[in-house]
Design a binder for these strands. Structure first.
Lengths: 223, 223
DNA sequence: CTAAATTTGTCCGTATGTATT
DNA sequence: AAATACATACGGACAAATTTA
């Protein structure tokens, strides 16, 4: 059995209920040992975990304290837990809102090298022998476009999208919805989008990105 | 002194030089104890670290093994170390691109309860006695707006923004740039933005969000 | 200002449980 | 079935930093 669980649970619960607030000092490690009848090794294991989660901090000679942003961290924990499960419908709604904005940003920041990579992705997607291979280059094209924004934050947002896409029903949905006709249409839409970006035409690029995503959503979710 | 350092260094160096390759089995914990004249607790502490970094894996009854992607993980360590820092300029550029899009999405999804919370944030920000307090409600208002999109992915994006904002020069920059006149202007811009969202006027809401962010950026970065 | 007490940081040796070989 | 090897836990000791008397 895990003898560390009671201590861990009690501390977390105290933080959640507000019995322990930012700046408060926790009992000493040895006090926890006696109170919970566990070894100091076990106590320190628990405190180590909480310290890594930035819920507490420890100072030699002084004691163990609740960090200033403990409540916030704890709140964002719950959010993160439910975060990785994002439905295709929710993700597509967000992509429809955000990607056209990213495309407009790309127009301001993209270089010739970026365009080359985009067109290379288009070409390789068109030459793909299988649907699996096509999807690889499809995904890579969208990634190249996002990277062409040359903005670290946008790159993080795109990584989030990939994460949501990788873990879930998305793969199955996409596989089932990709017919030869649709693939051909996607290829044309990709080319048209890249061309609009290359021409530095914000309005047209936005429109083509939106239309492509609407098309993908319609095929994926039937609306 | 840290008696765990020699063992840690030796293993890392062996991984880096290729003496230890993917799938290779490491000596047993007790063998390390004897070889380095350290306790098993210390050995386990080192192996625990490497396990968390996904460089090795351990199996009960079998042994300790080098993971398949150990070399790759080790290589990307150095890169990641300098990666996660996003400058205020980069963050503001991304916010300018993404937040107006989010605002437009909010118009389609926000409820009466959302509007109440937004206006409550505005009121509390206006009533704030100190700049610190004002910033709390300022941040909370932007959070409420993002939450009103009622989209889990957008919520994640906003959490990313908070993370980038919390860790860095942002706090100092903001504190230094917030004068009484500017604070008053922000309050009016907030009210105007919320009103536009409430009126479900996409174009106006976008414009006001953009103007507010441009204003913040100008004050923050002087351009 | 000094010295003692307190508290975390690190390390050690041992014992028992559990899964694999 | 026995040996091997990791998983978990305990209690003790000393060092280092801080607080207190």
């Amino acid at each position: 059995m895990d003898t560390s669980q009671p201590l861990r649970d009690t501390i977390i619960e105290s933080l959640r209920s507000g019995q322990l607030r930012a700046g408060d000092r926790l009992p000493t490690e040895r006090a926890f040992c006696e109170q919970y009848r566990i070894s100091r090794t076990t106590v320190r294991k628990v405190l180590q975990e909480l310290k890594e989660r930035e819920l507490i901090s420890q100072t030699v000679g002084s004691g163990t304290y609740v960090t200033e942003h403990a409540a916030q961290k704890l709140a964002s924990m719950a959010a993160d837990a439910s975060a990785s499960q994002i439905s295709p419908a929710v993700l597509m709604e967000a992509r429809l809102a955000l990607e056209p904005a990213i495309v407009e940003m790309v127009i301001g920041n993209a270089t010739a090298a970026d365009f080359e990579q985009m067109e290379s992705c288009c070409a390789k997607a068109e030459a793909a022998a299988s649907n699996e291979e096509f999807e690889v280059w499809d995904g890579l094209l969208h990634e190249r476009i996002a990277q062409a924004a040359h903005n670290a934050f946008v790159a993080n947002v795109f990584a989030l999208m990939n994460q949501a896409r990788a873990q879930g029903e998305w793969g199955m949905l996409k596989k089932r919805s990709l017919t030869p006709e649709r693939r051909l249409a996607y290829q044309q839409e990709h080319r048209a989008l890249v061309q609009a970006i290359k021409n530095r035409d914000p309005a047209l690029a936005r429109e083509r990105a939106t239309e492509h995503l609407l098309h993908v959503r319609r095929n994926l979710l039937n609306y």
